[in-house]
Simulated assay, not measured.
Amino acid sequence: MIISSASSNSTAAAAYAKTQSALETGLSVDDSDDLSLSSTDKASFGETLEAAVEGAVTSSKEAEVKAASGLKGNGNLTDIVTSISQAQMVLQTASAVRDKVIQSYQDIMRMTI
């Protein structure tokens, strides 16, 4: 099955919007199937980016706290490994987004007027 890039982009955008609304409402992605946000309830790009950065910082701090407690001999090893893996995944995602933003900026700068 061949999917055109336009339908692929709209599908990805719809999935992103569904996930974002689930995060904002505290529901799981499956529970938010029937929800539709009005234009006043949608977060701006800046607000969404700010929330993502705050989530990344929180995830890193939690991983540091759990790693420190593990070094002291306290804590559950599974929780420690899970939180560190989650923080690593968040860092990799942030790096990928940063690379895409830089690439987009460079593409825009190469455009002729």
Score class of each variant (00 low, 15 high):
residue 1 M to G: 14
residue 1 M to I: 13
residue 2 I to C: 10
residue 4 S to A: 15
residue 4 S to H: 15
residue 5 S to F: 14
residue 6 A to Y: 08
residue 7 S to E: 14
residue 7 S to V: 14
residue 8 S to E: 14
residue 8 S to C: 14
residue 9 N to D: 15
residue 10 S to L: 08
residue 13 A to K: 00
residue 15 A to T: 09
residue 15 A to M: 10
residue 16 Y to V: 13
residue 17 A to G: 00
residue 17 A to M: 00
residue 17 A to K: 00
residue 21 S to D: 11
residue 22 A to R: 00
residue 22 A to F: 02
residue 23 L to I: 01
residue 23 L to G: 00
residue 25 T to I: 03
residue 27 L to Y: 12
residue 28 S to Q: 03
residue 28 S to C: 04
residue 29 V to L: 03
residue 30 D to V: 13
residue 32 S to T: 05
residue 32 S to F: 06
residue 32 S to E: 07
residue 32 S to A: 10
residue 32 S to C: 07
residue 34 D to N: 13
residue 37 L to A: 11
residue 38 S to V: 07
residue 39 S to H: 04
residue 39 S to D: 09
residue 40 T to R: 09
residue 41 D to Q: 08
residue 41 D to K: 05
residue 42 K to H: 02
residue 42 K to V: 04
residue 43 A to R: 14
residue 44 S to I: 00
residue 47 E to W: 01
residue 47 E to M: 00
residue 48 T to F: 03
residue 48 T to H: 04
residue 49 L to V: 03
residue 49 L to W: 04
residue 50 E to W: 15
residue 51 A to F: 02
residue 51 A to H: 02
residue 53 V to W: 10
residue 53 V to N: 07
residue 54 E to W: 02
residue 56 A to D: 05
residue 57 V to I: 05
residue 58 T to M: 09
residue 60 S to C: 09
residue 60 S to G: 11
residue 61 K to M: 02
residue 63 A to M: 00
residue 64 E to A: 12
residue 64 E to L: 12
residue 64 E to K: 10
residue 65 V to N: 07
residue 65 V to G: 05
residue 66 K to P: 03
residue 66 K to T: 01
residue 66 K to C: 02
residue 66 K to H: 01
residue 68 A to F: 08
residue 68 A to V: 05
residue 68 A to C: 04
residue 69 S to Q: 07
residue 69 S to V: 06
residue 70 G to R: 03
residue 71 L to G: 07
residue 72 K to D: 12
residue 72 K to Y: 09
residue 76 N to T: 04
residue 77 L to T: 05
residue 77 L to I: 06
residue 78 T to G: 13
residue 79 D to W: 02
residue 81 V to C: 11
residue 81 V to H: 07
residue 82 T to Q: 08
residue 85 S to E: 10
residue 85 S to V: 11
residue 86 Q to L: 10
residue 86 Q to W: 12
residue 86 Q to F: 15
residue 87 A to G: 02
residue 89 M to D: 15
residue 89 M to I: 15
residue 90 V to F: 14
residue 91 L to R: 15
residue 92 Q to N: 13
residue 95 S to N: 15
residue 96 A to T: 14
residue 97 V to K: 05
residue 98 R to Q: 13
residue 98 R to F: 15
residue 99 D to A: 09
residue 99 D to F: 04
residue 101 V to D: 01
residue 102 I to D: 06
residue 103 Q to F: 11
residue 104 S to Y: 08
residue 104 S to L: 12
residue 105 Y to L: 15
residue 106 Q to E: 11
residue 113 I to Q: 08
